[in-house]
Design a protein around this nucleic acid. Sequence first.
DNA 1: TTGTACGCGTTATCAA
DNA 2: TTGATAACGCGTACAA
Lengths: 357, 357
Amino acid sequence: MTNTRRRATIADVARAAGVSTSTASVVFSGKVKVADATREKVLAAAADLGYSGPDPRAASLRLGRSGIVGVVLGADLRHAFLDPVTTVLMEGLTEALADASVGLLLLRDDPRVPEAPPIAEAPVDALVLLGCSTRTREAVEGVRGRGLPVVVIEGTGVEGMPEITLDNRAASATMARHVADLGHSRVGIITLALEIERIRGPVTVERLATATVEVALDRLAGLREVFPDAPAVSAAGSLIDEGMIAARALLLDDAGELRADRPTAILAQSDLLAVGAIRAAQECGLRVPDDLTVVGFDGIAVDGLGGQRLTTIQQPALEKGRAAGEQVARMLAGEPGRSVHFACTFRPGTTAAPPAA
Amino acid sequence: MTNTRRRATIADVARAAGVSTSTASVVFSGKVKVADATREKVLAAAADLGYSGPDPRAASLRLGRSGIVGVVLGADLRHAFLDPVTTVLMEGLTEALADASVGLLLLRDDPRVPEAPPIAEAPVDALVLLGCSTRTREAVEGVRGRGLPVVVIEGTGVEGMPEITLDNRAASATMARHVADLGHSRVGIITLALEIERIRGPVTVERLATATVEVALDRLAGLREVFPDAPAVSAAGSLIDEGMIAARALLLDDAGELRADRPTAILAQSDLLAVGAIRAAQECGLRVPDDLTVVGFDGIAVDGLGGQRLTTIQQPALEKGRAAGEQVARMLAGEPGRSVHFACTFRPGTTAAPPAA
DNA sequence: TTGTACGCGTTATCAA
DNA sequence: TTGATAACGCGTACAA
């Protein structure tokens, strides 16, 4: 029977088995060969004492690593995982870190809690920043004194941190050019949220001056290289319903009627927004792509599009996550981390065509 | 200048500041009052040595806790977060654990790696099981020897573990009765995946015998209380596209024509499946609810439904997550954990109506 | 192949 | 208010 006073330790097991603690330790770590008979004795003693392996806390102190990689999410966890691109990215991260880590620790950068950034108290071996505010950046700066590897995904990092970036502007320009080449000249743009406050509505010059979300701005800049005067409407988030709302704003007049000068193509900054635009078009009796061309950005596996294949820009979200994971792994191995820049590719689908004569 | 040979420890800081290690420790923990002058000295020494606070690994060994709660996801992380119900549940979990100031460690139960369940190596203070396989259950059983609190969400737990459960069967029966009361007698059922292998197709008696996914089986049993002979088709996952496929199987004949004896109502086991069914119905030229009643299950905020409001069963996903978090918190505080059972509520919408005469 | 002894970096206790 | 000391539980040179 086990002694209830205190949890059994490896020393207790060793004593009960009549071996030294180092032998017992080795039995559990498997790093060195042990005689079968000895191992049996140790395992039996462990079972008897209710000992279920080395305490990870003690092991991590001794080894100097915990096997945990922290992922700092700018927004709340829920929102971060609602976005399919983020989800896929996390998968890539997980994949690349499978060998090097035990798990991902979700850390949220909560501006409501000014004290004690949990980043400093988390026993992590490395950090991945994924859409972080300036405040997060400061907290991380503090932790860097500990010598932790830090990788920044799509966000301005602190000097010396490896960054994972994307050619948002160039890819958007490519897409715009494709639409222009099809013969479209009257196009409408649906942007991602331009501000952290997620305001929905027409994109004006004034708003652009105060906009802060780099991804949205970069993609817009790329589209405007080809269509400098295209009207743009911002969505409050990357959601199908938001795409529907924005598309209606572009297609309909105040009376809810199709406007005569409506765009013949809609360029959406995300696939979900594009799906919403397609839905809105169908609602209005417009056929895609016959009456309206709709293109997206991201190249995620869109759920709910039925048979159509969205014409879009394929972003290597999985690879981004993997790259981040690989850089973390490299740095954990003592090598220097490198920044990685990714290029998107154009992916033709069935939702873009020349404008109706 | 700092010595590059070794990372500074609190002892180094104390020595440099001319105080004892305990005093230096207290300066950082803030648990006891220290003279301002002393604190300044310590802080200055820390800054000078590049010491950025106590090492969380050492602290967690000393304190006996890490401030981390592990969430074991049965499937891969990606899939788990693709499901909106899970996402919301995670949010509730986060919320309930925010006060305990703990982080969430994502652990995946990867069946491909037979050795070394990471669960055993993670320095967690508690575990939450969220759709776990038998194999996970065994691993957890082993870890329980460590005295870790474990909470199981919707899955058969090991004896003595608090469980968070739902009245899937009763709620489904309620919904079926509602549809029957509207006057429907020819209904079709779309089930969630019945097996872990996620097979798509007609639900036969033979399949039911080998089906393993409890949630799907419970909901089906509830529906069949009212419609014992209703044909059922299983989806390969809770996705809109899967709902479309399944709905087509129920509505169309082999030639792709609407069958004369098609159901007048479709009961889907999830909201996403229901959305897919609605989409398929529209494709076939059927109006919802005029020509076809469609109901769901979950009560999530469905993206992409446009103006419609789905008639569904509201499941308290957020509360489930919260409850799990609360039980974890209780157990961390030394109190015994309790199982919590939740009831769903019927939520009327605009997608259910009496069958056309 | 096994045992001894030490240190990983911290914090709680107690005494001064 | 501060200081000395003892754990916390483990892994690993090194010696046998």
